Structure formats: C-alpha cells, structure tokens
Amino acid sequence: MKVAIAGAGAVGRAIARELLQNEHDVTLIERDRTHIDVEAVSGATWLHADACELDDLERAELQTFDVMVAATGDDKANLVVSLLATTEFAVNRVVARVNDPRNEWLFNDDWGVDVAVSTPRMLASLVEEAVSVGDLVRLMTFRQGQANLVELTLPDDTPLAGKAVRRLQLPRDVALVAIIRGKRVIVPEPDDPLEGGDELVFIAPEEAERELHSAMKVPV
C-alpha cells in the first residue's frame, strides 16, 4: 500500500515507522526543512513540500497514493490536506489527525475525511474502557461518522454468560467483531459462548448504540 503522510513531526514519524514495519511504501511530506531527518525514518521517501499547496501535491504525484494521512499539529492544515487529497487527487482513503477535540465536528465528509483520529478523545475512551463495566464506550469513529467502534465489558455476573454468540439479539447493522478474553483476541463464531469479564468490540451506527447497550443487559 502506498501511503503519504503530511507532517513529519513526532506523530507523523511514528506512523511512518509502523507502516514501514508492515512493508508499506511511505512518503513523508514536510514543509519545514529543519524537521526533515532522513535517518530518523530511513525507509521512507522524504519530500520537502507544503501539503496544503496544490502544486506541491502534484509534484508528489498524490493521485498515485492509496492513503493520505494528515498528521500535522494544525487542524486547519489537516482539513485542507484532506480536502485536496479527496477532491483534487481522488485518494481512496483519507485519515486525519484531530488535535483539538473541539474541532472534531469539522472532520467529516464535507472536508474529505474518511477517518478522524482524535488523540485526546481516544485516550479518554481508553481510560473509560479500563474502568467501565457494563457501559458502552466509543473508541473510534469511522467513515464520516456513520459507524463507530464501540466496546462493552460484560460484568462477571452477566446473565449472558454461557450464551452463544448466535443468540445475541443485536440491533440492525451492528456487528460483533471481536471478543477480548484475558490475553486472547477471539474472532467470534456463532457457537462461541460468552463469559463474564469478556470485552466485546462492536461496529455500530450511532443511532443503534442505545439499543445495543440495552440488548447487552437483557438475557437472550
């Protein structure tokens, strides 16, 4: 997969290293020459350019990339990068970093964003996930806010213990994608039984979250 990353700060470099470990083709685009350090991410292609400038993105041949990651520390810049990547270069997937959670509402389809990643919100969600039992916790929003990755930890005394996955009465368009049980990550099969303490990970539209929460508290 060919990935362009706008912004070669600590976040952009960390993303690049992870992608390179998974054998992806990564290009880092950085407008501040003093931030360019080829040795810091030696497997990436470095480009001194402004990802908010159409001419520079044309020089980078952005239309040949599969994914654009807008990872600068400036929300305005990340929105502009996302919009250009989508409207001018038809990049298939645009992931944008949200620095200020108050701006999260802007990171949607109108600005060409497929997935918005808010580090403060994600950290808060992980804290909630660590201490919340029986409550639905939103971990991430996908695809212009039409679907969310949510988690629910079953109480030890859940009435669902021993019930098979196929017997869960999930709301429409909700999918159980993983069961985390201790150190195991289980891809659920219809006959797999649930246990108290299981962390259930779902993909669900926002309008179905309340119904999902209620369904997981009721025996089936």
Score class of each variant (00 low, 15 high):
46 W>I: 01
28 L>R: 06
91 V>F: 07
130 A>T: 10
33 R>D: 15
110 D>F: 13
97 R>N: 15
72 T>Y: 05
58 E>P: 07
61 E>K: 13
127 V>E: 11
52 C>P: 03
90 A>I: 05
103 N>P: 08
95 V>W: 00
138 R>Q: 15
131 V>E: 10
114 D>W: 01
96 A>T: 02
144 Q>I: 05
48 H>C: 03
96 A>D: 05
73 G>R: 12
36 I>F: 11
36 I>Y: 11
83 L>A: 12
46 W>H: 08
109 D>Q: 14
129 E>W: 03
56 D>A: 07
111 W>V: 06
154 L>N: 00
128 E>A: 09
47 L>S: 08
161 A>K: 10
108 N>C: 12
41 V>R: 00
50 D>W: 03
48 H>T: 05
30 E>C: 07
64 T>S: 14
115 V>E: 07
46 W>Q: 04
161 A>N: 08
85 A>T: 05
32 D>P: 06
88 E>S: 13
36 I>G: 03
29 I>Q: 00
75 D>V: 05
90 A>S: 14
151 E>Y: 04
143 R>P: 02
79 L>S: 07
152 L>N: 00
59 R>N: 08
35 H>G: 15
88 E>F: 11
170 L>V: 07
55 D>A: 12
63 Q>Y: 15
38 V>F: 14
120 P>M: 13
67 V>G: 01
110 D>Q: 14
92 N>F: 09
93 R>F: 09
172 R>Y: 09
45 T>N: 10
161 A>L: 04
102 R>W: 12
162 G>N: 11
36 I>C: 11
29 I>H: 00
84 L>A: 02
70 A>T: 00
137 V>S: 03
110 D>I: 09
86 T>C: 11
150 V>I: 06
110 D>A: 13
93 R>H: 07
70 A>L: 02
51 A>K: 02
55 D>E: 13
32 D>H: 13
121 R>N: 14
49 A>P: 01
71 A>M: 05
170 L>Y: 11
65 F>G: 00
166 R>D: 13
65 F>T: 01
119 T>C: 14
97 R>S: 09
54 L>W: 06
163 K>D: 09
137 V>Q: 01
57 L>M: 10
71 A>V: 05
155 P>I: 04
169 Q>A: 14
35 H>C: 12
76 K>D: 14
139 L>I: 08
108 N>E: 15
99 N>Y: 06
28 L>M: 10
133 V>T: 12
66 D>A: 12
53 E>G: 02
94 V>C: 09
64 T>G: 13
169 Q>G: 10
142 F>G: 02
79 L>M: 13
86 T>F: 06
89 F>R: 03
168 L>W: 08
49 A>W: 02
128 E>G: 08
84 L>H: 01
160 L>H: 06
99 N>Q: 09
151 E>I: 02
113 V>R: 01
102 R>F: 12
118 S>T: 08
65 F>I: 04
129 E>H: 05
175 A>K: 13
32 D>K: 13
150 V>W: 00
54 L>F: 06
132 S>Y: 03
147 A>W: 01
54 L>K: 10
62 L>A: 10
96 A>P: 03
45 T>H: 07
78 N>W: 01
139 L>D: 03
86 T>P: 00
165 V>H: 07
138 R>I: 15
73 G>H: 10
151 E>H: 09
32 D>L: 08
138 R>P: 11
67 V>M: 09
41 V>A: 05
134 G>Q: 04
143 R>S: 15
142 F>L: 12
95 V>P: 00
46 W>R: 02
86 T>E: 13
